[in-house]
């Protein structure tokens, strides 16, 4: 099984970090993974995206893709750019916050999540990406939650491990959004 995912949104939303936690969770689960970012000025605003591939079929060939099994699209620009590139039968997850033209396709499964709304009740707005990751894994069980827990410990430097709990809480909140 190979799952090809794109995560796209505003620079600063935590798109790349979310991809990294997902990739690390895949690694913890014994999968082959690639994480390929759009890099450069995006991190100072504009749109950022990352392609994450998780596979139990051995080494992954291309880290860049034409089409995706799952697209997690967190702003209008990303929806406009990537809706057409979801494989037929695939999954599109989008955050309705600030989106004026929702996805139109009928040959894919579309999930609308209110992750930005949920962030307003959280102690830190910086956990937005963990809410989205919780929603993604609540919708499609790509890797177990325990692997995400282990990944957080790897990705968050040990000097910041006081932030583990708030991230785990946000992850659970994301799962509840789609539960």
């Amino acid at each position: 099984m190979k799952t090809e995912i794109i995560i796209a949104g505003f620079g600063g939303q935590g798109v790349l970090s979310m991809g990294k936690i997902l990739a690390y969770a895949g690694l913890m689960h014994g999968l082959d993974v690639t994480w390929m970012p759009s890099y450069g000025p995006e991190q100072r605003g504009g749109t950022a995206n990352v392609t994450v591939i998780l596979s139990d079929e051995g080494p992954i060939s291309s880290p860049v893709l034409d089409t995706f099994d799952i697209a997690v699209l967190l702003n209008q620009q990303s929806l406009d750019k990537f809706e057409s590139r979801v494989k037929p039968g695939g999954i599109l997850i989008y955050d309705s916050y600030g989106v004026h033209t929702p996805p139109q396709r009928t040959d894919i499964t579309v999930y609308r999540i209110e992750a930005m709304e949920a962030t307003f009740d959280m102690p830190s707005s910086k956990t937005y990406n963990m809410i989205v990751l919780g929603a993604l894994l609540g919708i499609e069980h790509i890797v177990p939650s325990e692997s995400v827990d282990l990944a957080l410990e790897k990705v968050i430097p040990s000097r910041h491990h006081d932030l583990l709990e708030v991230n785990r809480t946000a992850f659970r909140r994301g799962m509840e959004l789609v539960g």
Binding site: V33, W35, M36, V64
Partner: peptide, 10 residues
């Protein structure tokens, strides 16, 4: 190249 420099893998 920038791909293999910037991408993450195991």
């Amino acid at each position: 190249d920038g791909i293999v420099g910037q991408m993450m893998e195991k």
